[in-house]
Design a protein around this nucleic acid. Sequence first.
DNA 1: GTCTATAGGGTGATAGAC
DNA 2: GTCTATCACCCTATAGAC
Lengths: 210, 210
Amino acid sequence: MPSDTKDRILDSAEILFAQNGFSATSLRAITDHADVNLASVNYHFQSKDALVQAVLMRRLNPVNQRRLEMLNAILQRFPASPPPVEEILEAFYRPVVEEVMKSQREGRPIMPLIGRIFIEPGELVASQVRSLMSQVVTAFVDAFHLALPQVPPAVLFWRLQFAVGMMSHTFAAAPLIEGLSRGRIRINDTEEVLRQLIAFAAGGLRGAMP
Amino acid sequence: MPSDTKDRILDSAEILFAQNGFSATSLRAITDHADVNLASVNYHFQSKDALVQAVLMRRLNPVNQRRLEMLNAILQRFPASPPPVEEILEAFYRPVVEEVMKSQREGRPIMPLIGRIFIEPGELVASQVRSLMSQVVTAFVDAFHLALPQVPPAVLFWRLQFAVGMMSHTFAAAPLIEGLSRGRIRINDTEEVLRQLIAFAAGGLRGAMP
DNA sequence: GTCTATAGGGTGATAGAC
DNA sequence: GTCTATCACCCTATAGAC
């Protein structure tokens, strides 16, 4: 339980944004849920847009930092030979999947938020995400180029986007997917989700050139 | 230019939903854009929710029908041997990609809508999409089982969802992706998009078992 | 830092005249 | 089928007392 007002607002905003989307969630709903005063949102953050950014950044910054750490560790272990595709993919996926599953256990599930980041309109969200993702995308495209020198960089870029979409859609549409599968799959086991993501993405990255 | 009020509302709603999302688009914005009276929305449709459904169904029904037609044509050509994975993937992707690109040319781009379908909250949207997607998912999982008998059905189900996510994210986040790629890729050529999607998904579907 | 009160405007839906 | 007018309510943001 966060005691300080600013954290209470961030936590409640995260829960409600994940459940109902950004624009469908009013500041009143957030302050009611957080049991704080309506005006405190505009005191601690300046506007609703700034609050949305703060909620996203609190989750995305540690995830992207961890991705780059894991990637660098791999590259140092393979200074002269191509690094394994599967290991690069694990560096890309594991920090997100672990953060998402942690949020489930803590009762503040952010699964739908992950998918919405790339999709909700609004210049601010897009520009923030863009600058934050830019160095991650560059680093991973470069790593995949080392691992798969025969695949042209433009094709690697397509394929990295597909790798993002696989995960993003899996989390964003998790309830729909679990329902459609009629019990065949469940999206709640970190290692199982990672195995499935990495196996498919590795096959895709290595796929015949179009 | 549609002359009849109901179609004018559907067209304007589609444009604005694609640009700004469902909940951020007001009925007033729609009727202003369509140059029709506000009350006509509640006359022709009963509510905003029903309008959202009508907009989605107008696009999704023909696409899913075409998918099943193409799939059946393939299965009839391979009555005794496994059908090729690439052809099944083309039956899955081509109707959507063509519909999206057609909408671009007609000045009513639905790219962002495609990604949002699976993500926007609201029981109505979810339940409509669910029942509409259900037979498509079943038919394609069965077809992939014929094409790849060594892959367990549960894994095929994971992989079909990944195939959906690849496309859905590519369209939903197209401006972001094109920006991040710094000119390396453009998402505006039907055949190029299909080649990239099919090559990656085919590799993924054939990938080593996790 | 936290509160009340309110400004200023938008929202979906509908009643009832034409 | 189409319109005007309106109901009842929700919204973000802020001024100003404590």
